[in-house]
Simulated assay, not measured.
Amino acid sequence: MSTMSIPLPDALKSFVDEQVSQRGYGTSSEYLRELIRKGQGCQQLRSLLLAGAASALTALADVSYFEGLRDLVRKSASPRTKV
C-alpha cells in the first residue's frame, strides 16, 4: 500500500475530523478512502451512462417492457421476497 500526504486548509481538516467522528470512521484515512471509492463508482457509472447514450436503440422502453422486467424479477426472487 502506498502513502499520500495531502495538505489541507484548517477549515477542510476540521470538516474531515467532524465527518470521521460523526460517521464512525476510525481514521481520516478511512474516510478519504471511502470518498475516493465513491468517486470511482461515480466515474464508472458516468462511463456506462455515456456508453448507453451513444449506443443504438435496441428496444422501446414502454409499459410492456417494464412489466416484462418486473415479471422476470418476480420469477427469480425467492418465495419469501415480495416484489
Rank of each mutant, 00 (worst) to 15 (best):
residue 1 M to K: 07
residue 1 M to C: 05
residue 2 S to F: 00
residue 4 M to N: 03
residue 4 M to E: 06
residue 4 M to K: 09
residue 4 M to I: 14
residue 5 S to H: 05
residue 5 S to G: 08
residue 6 I to C: 00
residue 7 P to I: 02
residue 7 P to K: 05
residue 8 L to F: 01
residue 9 P to Y: 01
residue 9 P to N: 05
residue 10 D to A: 10
residue 10 D to N: 06
residue 11 A to N: 05
residue 11 A to W: 01
residue 11 A to K: 07
residue 12 L to I: 10
residue 13 K to V: 01
residue 14 S to A: 10
residue 14 S to C: 01
residue 14 S to G: 03
residue 15 F to L: 13
residue 15 F to A: 11
residue 15 F to T: 13
residue 17 D to P: 06
residue 17 D to G: 10
residue 17 D to H: 07
residue 18 E to P: 00
residue 18 E to Q: 07
residue 18 E to N: 05
residue 18 E to H: 03
residue 19 Q to I: 13
residue 20 V to E: 04
residue 21 S to V: 04
residue 22 Q to W: 02
residue 22 Q to E: 11
residue 22 Q to N: 11
residue 23 R to E: 09
residue 24 G to Y: 00
residue 25 Y to C: 03
residue 25 Y to M: 04
residue 26 G to F: 04
residue 26 G to D: 08
residue 27 T to P: 04
residue 27 T to K: 13
residue 28 S to R: 13
residue 29 S to I: 09
residue 31 Y to F: 13
residue 31 Y to A: 14
residue 31 Y to M: 12
residue 32 L to Q: 03
residue 32 L to E: 02
residue 32 L to N: 02
residue 32 L to H: 03
residue 33 R to W: 00
residue 33 R to H: 08
residue 34 E to Q: 15
residue 34 E to Y: 04
residue 34 E to G: 09
residue 35 L to K: 14
residue 35 L to Q: 14
residue 36 I to V: 15
residue 36 I to S: 14
residue 39 G to K: 13
residue 41 G to R: 12
residue 41 G to V: 15
residue 42 C to E: 11
residue 42 C to H: 09
residue 42 C to R: 07
residue 43 Q to H: 10
residue 43 Q to C: 08
residue 43 Q to V: 15
residue 44 Q to L: 14
residue 44 Q to W: 07
residue 45 L to F: 10
residue 46 R to Y: 08
residue 47 S to H: 12
residue 47 S to L: 14
residue 48 L to V: 13
residue 49 L to H: 06
residue 49 L to C: 08
residue 49 L to S: 06
residue 50 L to Y: 09
residue 51 A to R: 13
residue 52 G to W: 09
residue 52 G to S: 08
residue 52 G to C: 07
residue 53 A to G: 11
residue 53 A to P: 02
residue 53 A to F: 12
residue 53 A to Q: 09
residue 54 A to E: 07
residue 54 A to D: 08
residue 55 S to V: 11
residue 55 S to G: 13
residue 55 S to H: 11
residue 55 S to T: 13
residue 55 S to A: 15
residue 57 L to Y: 07
residue 57 L to Q: 10
residue 57 L to P: 07
residue 58 T to F: 03
residue 59 A to I: 07
residue 59 A to G: 06
residue 59 A to V: 10
residue 60 L to E: 12
residue 61 A to S: 10
residue 62 D to M: 01
residue 62 D to R: 01
residue 62 D to I: 04
residue 62 D to S: 03
residue 62 D to N: 12
residue 63 V to D: 11
residue 63 V to F: 02
residue 65 Y to C: 02
residue 65 Y to H: 14
residue 65 Y to W: 09
residue 66 F to T: 04
residue 66 F to I: 11
residue 66 F to W: 13
residue 67 E to C: 04
residue 67 E to S: 10
residue 67 E to L: 12
residue 68 G to I: 02
residue 69 L to T: 01
residue 70 R to F: 07
residue 70 R to C: 09
residue 71 D to F: 00
residue 72 L to V: 06
residue 72 L to P: 01
residue 73 V to A: 12
residue 73 V to R: 04
residue 74 R to L: 12
residue 74 R to P: 03
residue 74 R to I: 14
residue 75 K to D: 13
residue 75 K to N: 12
residue 77 A to Y: 03
residue 77 A to I: 10
residue 77 A to M: 12
residue 77 A to R: 08
residue 78 S to P: 10
residue 78 S to I: 12
residue 78 S to M: 11
residue 79 P to Y: 05
residue 80 R to T: 15
residue 80 R to V: 14
residue 81 T to K: 05
residue 82 K to Q: 14
residue 82 K to D: 15
residue 82 K to G: 15
residue 82 K to N: 14
residue 83 V to M: 09
residue 83 V to R: 06
